[in-house]
Amino acid sequence: MNLNKNQKETIRGYLFVAPVLILLFLFSLYPLFKTIYFSFFDIRLASMNRKVFAGWKNYRLLFTRVNPSFFSQILPATVYYVVGSVAGQIGFGFLLAILVQQKFVKGREAIRAIIILPWVVSGIIIAISWRFMYEPRLGVLNYLLMRMGVVNPPTWLNDERLVMGCLVVANIWHGMAFSFIIQTSGLHSISDEVMEAALVDGANGFQRLTLIIIPLVRQFLVLNLILTSMATINSFDLIFAMTNGGPMFKTEVISVQMYHRAFGFGRLGEGSAIATIILLMNLILTIFYMRMNKNQSAGGDG
């Protein structure tokens, strides 16, 4: 009897997750298999019906090409972009979610709506308007700086050292809303009693944050971390429209490189190989986050 009930529960459980799994298998897994399959062929966008088996050649090309070099150009650019964007988006998202949540804050709805505004605007418009704002001679940014008395304002996207920072700022501006929403819903899951208890206990702000709030919303933070990291690794449109990977491959992150190979140069096989590598990078990162989460929670609960 008991076993039977368990079996029933199992069937019920799978019925609940069946719709999402069907959707994912059809529109994500199946095309993904095809992409991985393509990655072992010499296949051109212009002649997809003529493909020649190439073994590991497409993968070798990614790692052996010198211009751009994977290890000294693509990887550092990707890491810089992802770490900067993720830290900025989640950090500011969490901070603002907590601040806006404070009881004394007036006009909370309006503030939330404004904070989420950049997210409503299409990525293309974001990219071209930020590029134009950064423009050193005609852009509004340097115009304002010069009005404020700065004699030699930076050249932003033209400066090898600044260009990635510029992209990260634009990306934080655009994507922070996502983390803000997740963290806001996370904070909603904490009851007011807990919040108030923390205040009454005399815990100061920072202690309250680390000892009481963070453990309670940890699941939301980890999920946020995983999702934002993946979205940043996979995204290409902002960089594509603002610098197209330049100058000198300083902003050639791996997804932009994939776009260049697969679509720009029409080498679908190589693009597919890079896509597979992106997938692996995501996988490693996710496993890392999950491990970290597990250790943390084991330590905290024990």
Partner: peptide, 21 residues
């Protein structure tokens, strides 16, 4: 010619002539 042309699209440069840049 400034090095900042690295991020200057053709249209930015062309506009620059008419805008006195």
């Amino acid at each position: 010619t400034p090095t900042s042309i690295v991020s200057g699209k053709a249209s930015d440069i062309d506009n620059g002539v008419f805008q006195g840049k």
